[in-house]
């Protein structure tokens, strides 16, 4: 850990403390309310855990980057499973030339994956499912699609980690803050 300057250490420790605090808040809510509040508690716990994850991400990434995890727990560098991953892997770790070195095959594979997920979604629309289950699956597929587009088409996977950390967590936190109002919509129906 000779690379770790004092500021970095302070930064990481503060973030870890905040993450721990968020986990404690979630645990406290579960212990006190035992989900009597229904969706309110569910949302609260989910948001608290998400905030904890976001706070914990920079220290964890820092640990991975500096090889701290490799020292503590020996993790073998597994060879990338698919060819697409192999290409991406080579891209991310290799030299970046004028063409950014990503082959067009990788993008075509991503495109096929996106089409497949879309087809799956349309198919799901014609399977009779419960509304909430349907919504969960659709949103899950959409988030995967959005992540694929951002990572490969928008090139975010090949940018610096600092740009990713500036863009992605801010959007996620803001959207979650908007969602905090959401449980009211279930209540509004009974208030009339």
């Amino acid at each position: 850990m000779e690379h770790q300057s004092k500021e970095t250490k302070f930064f990481n420790m503060t973030l870890l403390l905040l993450a721990g605090g968020a986990v404690l808040v979630a645990a406290w809510d579960v212990a006190v309310s035992r989900f009597r509040g229904g969706t309110d508690d569910l949302f609260f716990v989910l948001v608290a855990l998400l905030v904890a994850l976001l706070f914990a991400t920079p220290p964890i990434l820092f640990g991975i980057r500096t090889g701290w995890f490799h020292e503590k727990f020996v993790i073998d560098d597994e060879p990338p499973a698919t060819e697409a991953a192999a290409e991406a892997h080579a891209e991310a770790h290799g030299v970046e030339g004028e063409s950014h070195g990503v082959s067009n095959r990788l993008f075509i594979l991503v495109w096929i994956a996106l089409l497949g997920l879309t087809g799956l979604e349309v198919l799901l629309g014609y399977v009779q499912l419960r509304n909430d289950l349907m919504l969960t699956i659709l949103m899950g597929a959409s988030i995967i699609k959005a992540a694929l587009i951002m990572a490969y088409f928008m090139h975010l996977r090949f940018e610096r980690m600092s740009l990713v950390l500036t863009v992605v967590p801010a959007i996620v936190v803001c959207l979650c803050l908007m969602l905090i109002l959401f449980p009211d919509s279930f209540r509004l129906f009974h208030l009339r």
Binding site: T8, E159, R160, L163
Partner: peptide, 29 residues
């Protein structure tokens, strides 16, 4: 701090780390 983007184009940096005032902290224009 360890250099993150081995793949990023090498830009002249003022400081050693991003937090020390790197010239292009995000390596994008």
């Amino acid at each position: 701090m360890v250099e993150v983007g081995a793949h990023a184009t090498a830009e002249p940096l003022v400081g050693a780390s991003d937090w020390d005032g790197g010239a292009l902290p995000y390596r994008v224009g």
